[in-house]
């Protein structure tokens, strides 16, 4: 890999540095669910469904003041190049935890005491940015389920590739030798960041630039999320 990936601000797939991959969102894709969404973030594909508010099971997990969130993040065995063994893995447990925390304060959980809201995010095709695609889908699924929220949560990663600060890295870009990847989830309406993870090697200055770039990305994504919801309700009333 002696050839540079990014030349004159143009990336291998023709995108500019601050451009997200093509994002397609469809709300209401699982008939049985209370809310659902399908997201294609570049070549990453995710389906998310929401059930609830419903009775808590097992009951001792009930909270008399608010609903509890039960989040599942799962990669389907054939979603990755090397088959993923089904079942418990630490990465999925961690992602479910941070996603749950990213959504917790955004949903008006206190309106549904003693109940549970189940959010399931299933990765169908994995190609970089599965967690941000999953959160973007879950947020639309929650809205589709009619669950009251302070706004839509939008999610994207930004990072560094060959010294450039770039939005929404592809797998190829993530593999660059100096690459860092910083996924963020944001209440785009206010700019409040509710999920942030990073690993790599970066200065404070670079971190600031990268986080600022996710802000732009999330605002772009929020528009597409809103449109997907409007499209679904327009179709229902037509």
């Amino acid at each position: 890999m002696s050839e540079k990936l990014i030349n004159k601000g143009i990336r291998p797939d023709g995108r500019k540095l601050d451009e997200i991959r093509p994002l397609k969102i469809k709300a209401g894709v699982v008939d049985r669910a209370d809310g659902s969404a399908y997201v294609e973030f570049g070549t990453t594909k995710v389906i998310s469904a929401v059930y609830g508010p419903k009775k808590v099971h097992p009951r001792h997990m009930e909270n008399s003041k608010k609903a509890i969130l039960k989040v599942r993040y799962n990669m389907i065995p054939f979603s990755v190049y090397d088959r993923k063994r089904p079942g418990y893995d630490k990465r999925s447990v961690e992602i479910a935890k941070v996603v749950s925390e990213a959504l917790e304060n955004v949903i008006f959980l206190e309106e549904f005491p003693k109940s549970a809201i189940d959010i399931d995010m299933e990765i169908i095709q994995a190609d970089a940015g599965t967690r941000v695609a999953a959160i973007t889908a879950a947020s639309v699924a929650l809205a589709d389920a009619g669950i009251p929220m302070r706004g839509l949560i939008s999610s994207v990663a930004a990072g560094r590739v060959e010294g450039n600060i770039v939005l929404d890295l592809t797998k190829e870009e993530e593999d660059a030798s100096d690459a860092i990847d910083l996924p963020v989830a944001m209440l785009a309406r206010t700019g409040e960041i509710t999920l942030l993870q990073m690993d790599g090697d970066a200065s404070v200055d670079e971190i600031e630039k990268i986080v600022r770039m996710t802000e732009k990305g999330c605002k772009d994504i929020e528009k597409i999320q809103g449109k997907a919801l409007i499209e679904k309700y327009n179709a229902n009333t037509a």
Binding site: K97, V98, E101, E104, N105, L182, M186, L187, G191, E192, I193, T194, L195, L196, Q197, M198, D199, G200, D201, A202, S203, V204, I207, E208, V211, R212, E215
Partner: peptide
């Protein structure tokens, strides 16, 4: 002085300014 890992936890959120302050 370089950062090798970051992880936000808990239900609340941060502004960009707070994140930079925390890094420092």
């Amino acid at each position: 002085g370089n950062i090798s890992s970051m992880q936000k936890g808990g239900p609340g959120g941060f502004t960009v300014e707070e994140i930079v302050e925390i890094c420092k």
